[in-house]
């Protein structure tokens, strides 16, 4: 079983119980269940963690009043690990799509290799260098995300809804709770992500620094040129997308004919 299939299987194993619970929830109408079933099918084909996280948020939004009535709290530890796993799978998938690297081990070895070569001379913006940036980024982003999820879990455990918020602000306790957690997480994210991003920024090559400076100066001094270039890039991206779709289509028809 390849890593891609393994990821899909783990994703399905993680989301399966949650989604089955959603579909069997007696509080939902048929329309809501159909929406969840559609999202489930989308999730299975695309295996997108953000979609599933939105699904869980929807579930929390719809069942938040019933959760307080239940005496036994839901299993926070299992939910926490499910969310962490989904997040890491999603990050791994997107980074692999960007770099074309098959596994984490390959990513790390290629990083070491390019680090050695870049110490000898400043490498241009080639594929090897892009691999090095992606390798260091994936570790930084994983650490950041893990810290944020830990902070979110702590906030959820500490902050409890305040019943007096309805009288004071016209907000429901759950709305108040969400706003408070959102603000604290936003602040936490900024404070945590700043050292990481600044640390990475110090490792710019002169070529990259020049590109950044030129793009900034063009943005400030020649705004029209920037707009033209952006339109060109969008056009090129669309053309590449069309080309890729045509290639996939021809490949699928060829494989069908071969079968």
């Amino acid at each position: 079983m390849g890593p891609r299939k393994l990821r899909y299987v783990i994703g399905i194993l993680c989301i399966g119980p949650v989604l089955i619970w959603q579909l069997q929830n007696p509080y939902y109408t048929l329309a809501v269940r159909l929406v969840f079933a559609g999202l489930l099918l989308l999730g299975l084909t695309r295996c997108s963690a953000p979609l599933l996280l939105i699904l869980i948020q929807l579930d929390l939004y719809l069942t938040v009043s019933t959760l307080y009535a239940v005496e036994d709290p839901p299993e926070p530890v299992i939910s926490f690990f499910c969310v962490v796993l989904l997040m890491l799978l999603s990050r791994l998938r997107s980074s692999q799509e960007l770099t074309g690297v098959r596994s984490i081990a390959q990513l790390l070895t290629s990083k070491v290799h390019t680090k050695r070569s870049s110490s000898e001379h400043a490498a241009p913006m080639g594929s090897d260098h892009r691999l090095q940036v992606a390798g260091s980024e994936i570790l930084g982003v994983a650490a950041r995300s893990l810290l944020l999820v830990l902070a979110a879990a702590l906030m959820l455990a500490i902050l409890t809804p305040d019943p007096s918020s309805v009288q004071e602000y016209g907000l429901t306790p759950s709305g108040m709770h969400t706003l408070s957690i959102g603000l604290i997480l936003c602040a936490g994210y900024l404070i945590i992500s700043l050292p990481f991003s600044e640390f990475h920024w110090r490792h710019l090559t002169p070529n990259q620094a020049g590109i950044y400076l030129r793009s900034r100066f063009i943005g400030w001094l020649h705004h029209d040129l920037r707009g033209i270039e952006r339109r060109r890039r969008r056009h090129r991206r669309k053309q590449a997308h069309r080309h890729r779709r045509a290639q996939n289509h021809s490949y699928s028809t060829y494989s069908k004919e071969a079968d």
Binding site: A122, L194, S197, E198, W201, L204, T205, Q208, A209, L213
Partner: peptide, 16 residues
């Protein structure tokens, strides 16, 4: 952050 990044990029470019 923009100021710090611009400054760092300018310093690296000038050093090279």
């Amino acid at each position: 952050v923009l100021l710090i990044r611009m400054n760092t990029a300018a310093r690296i470019s000038q050093q090279s």
